[in-house]
Nucleic acid binder design. Structure first.
Lengths: 138, 138
DNA sequence: CTTGACCTTACAGTAACTGGAAGGTATATA
DNA sequence: TATATACCTTCCAGTTACTGTAAGGTCAAG
């Protein structure tokens, strides 16, 4: 299979497949006479695995661990690995969600301030919103 | 004020302040005889404004808009601008939260699959988790 | 006169791609 | 045979918002 065929089958841009090879997430592809990359079913399976793992939000280093486990051990080790690591992934996600939720409520507060306070504030900065208060131009 | 003093007052690394100048978020700082950057209260105010806006999750382009508004117009324009844009920021955040929530539930499903299904799966891949199923080595 | 704490610039690296340029290759059509 | 097209190749730059590091200048104190 050429990289374009693989791209369609797996649903990843050719660019991305080459990129994965470059960062050693994939081993260097075999080459045909004309120097085109060629892929077989095993390569395809690895790419599906990578895509699935990325879709779970795992970063490329995590994916690399899992691919190696998959290639060098068996899936019972993947299960062990995931059982240990999924809680960590989830904590990371929780942190991000919390951060975003905090941002959102900050924005809501600011929105309310803007609605409640005087819109014309020439030199009456205590009536301004927090962003404006920090600026002397206000 | 030197950049180090400003850094302490505002709570931004000197690196970051120089970086903001480089990307034209700040105008080029005045220089003392020895070529050190010097800052005055106005610069400080702008930096506070920038820090506040970044803390709200706005990207540097948005911050640039707001700084320009602050320098070239008055805060009534900032209020208008924010009133229009905050809903957009919030939508963006909601999208991100939704994405993360989706990832988390995917991870939870996988976690359950791992707990429920056979851990030893030699060539019995239907019993494996989704990551493993995609791999021939399973 | 040296030590330490500042300051300067410039370049590289981060994460995970994406876009583009410049060029080789394979196939179908005129 | 010429060409149009749709692939493929490599390499370099850009994205976001910084951070780290190196190599070097400046200033005050001991």
């Amino acid at each position: 299979m050429t990289i374009g065929e693989v791209s369609k089958l797996v649903g990843l841009p050719t660019k991305t497949i080459r990129f994965y090879e470059k960062i050693k997430l994939l081993k260097p592809a075999n080459r045909s006479q004309n120097n085109y990359r060629t892929y077989n079913q095993d390569d395809l399976n690895i790419l599906f695995l990578i895509k699935e793992a990325r879709a779970l939000g795992l970063d490329t280093n995590e994916v690399k661990n899992i691919v190696n486990l998959c290639l060098n051990s068996g899936c019972e080790h993947i299960n062990d690995y995931l059982a240990k690591h999924i809680p960590i992934y989830k904590n990371t996600i929780d942190d991000q969600i919390q951060r975003l939720t905090g941002l959102k409520s900050k924005l809501s507060n600011l929105e309310q301030d803007i609605n409640n306070k005087s819109i014309n504030c020439k030199n009456d900065c205590d009536e301004c919103n927090i962003l404006c208060r920090t600026s002397k131009t206000c």
